[in-house]
């Protein structure tokens, strides 16, 4: 159950990598900080709602309403950050026809910039998250501990991913994204405004990363300036595992990585968890560089 919960969070973040890679062939390494901002925004939203550490956990309607408010705030914060990042950092590079390497280095630069910015502003210590909901065991399923918060994380992540999948498969803008991913020059000849599609993919990726931030905060109850690093790079692993550029691949890759990692830590011990996860990355790149489901956002058909 822990594996699936974490995996769902990885998958949400992985979608941001995959969407942007699909249309720009760029690994946006600063995406982990978009997620980090989602965690911080959730924390601030929780405080703004007047919930403090040690307060009794919320239930029923109050819980649902505050969760939704917090998540919307986090999604907006991350979404806007992603769009601004694209505008000020990547678009000027694209306009000048800069090589992809320049964009990649820029991504790493923005990532460090945002981390340090948050470190200076909010310190380098872990900030505690007030407990929003009671973490009660619902039942046990084949030895797995099914807990309320895990169910909530898993269900909301799946709903968001389903919404994204439908949007890309069905809507006009979604079709624009797929066309751009398959052949951006021809897409432009069909009347697709490529800049707008790129902005949209950053926005969508940011929204999902923000939601992942809220779920992460709910689950781990911690925020820190570098909190995005590990989940970010694991989400990247998940995206590669499923086939980068492939929406359903990101979903499958995230859940699979969460399960594998959990299984690895059960067998080898918890301290081996990260070693195990990144061994998976190296092995996938070695033996199946296009991932389990292969590349192509475009082929993620209805």
């Amino acid at each position: 159950m822990d594996g699936l919960t974490l995996g769902a969070i990885y998958a949400l973040i992985a979608l941001g990598y995959t969407l942007v890679y699909g249309v720009l062939r760029l690994i946006n390494f600063a995406h982990s900080e978009i997620f980090m901002i989602g965690v911080f925004a959730s924390l601030f939203a929780v405080h703004a709602l007047g919930i403090d550490v040690g307060d009794p956990a919320k239930t029923g309607f109050v819980l649902a309403a505050s969760l939704i408010v917090v998540m919307v705030v986090a999604m907006l914060a991350s979404g806007v950050t992603a769009v601004v990042m694209e505008r000020v950092a990547y678009r000027p590079l694209r306009r000048r026809g800069a090589p992809r390497l320049a964009a990649l280095i820029t991504a790493v630069g923005i990532s460090l910039f945002l981390q340090e910015l948050f470190a200076i502003r909010y310190g380098r210590e872990v900030l505690g998250f007030p407990r929003l909901m009671e973490k009660r065991q619902l039942f046990e399923l084949w030895g797995a501990n099914v807990r309320t918060d895990k169910v909530l994380v898993l269900v909301s992540a799946l709903l968001l991913m389903l919404a994204l999948d439908r949007f890309v498969a069905r809507s006009r803008l979604g079709r624009g994204i797929r066309a751009t991913a398959q052949d951006s020059e021809t897409a432009a000849l069909m009347g697709v405004n490529i800049d707008r599609v790129i902005m949209l993919t950053f926005l969508l990726g940011g929204l999902l990363a923000g939601a992942a931030g809220t779920l992460y905060g709910l689950f781990f109850e911690a925020a820190r300036y570098n909190i995005g690093f590990l989940p970010g790079i694991k989400a990247f692993t998940a995206a590669v595992l499923g086939g980068i550029g492939n929406i359903r691949g990101a979903l499958a890759g995230g859940l699979l990585l969460g399960l594998l990692e959990n299984w690895g830590s059960a067998v080898l011990g918890g301290e081996w968890k990260d070693v195990f996860a990144f061994t998976v990355l190296v092995l996938v790149l070695m033996f199946r560089p296009t991932g389990l489901l292969g590349e192509s956002l475009g082929r993620a058909r209805a």
Partner: peptide, 16 residues
């Protein structure tokens, strides 16, 4: 567009 159906390709033509 290889991953789109004939119908979707035609609809892309009317995107503008």
């Amino acid at each position: 567009f290889p991953g789109m159906t004939v119908m979707e390709n035609l609809e892309m033509g009317a995107y503008a």
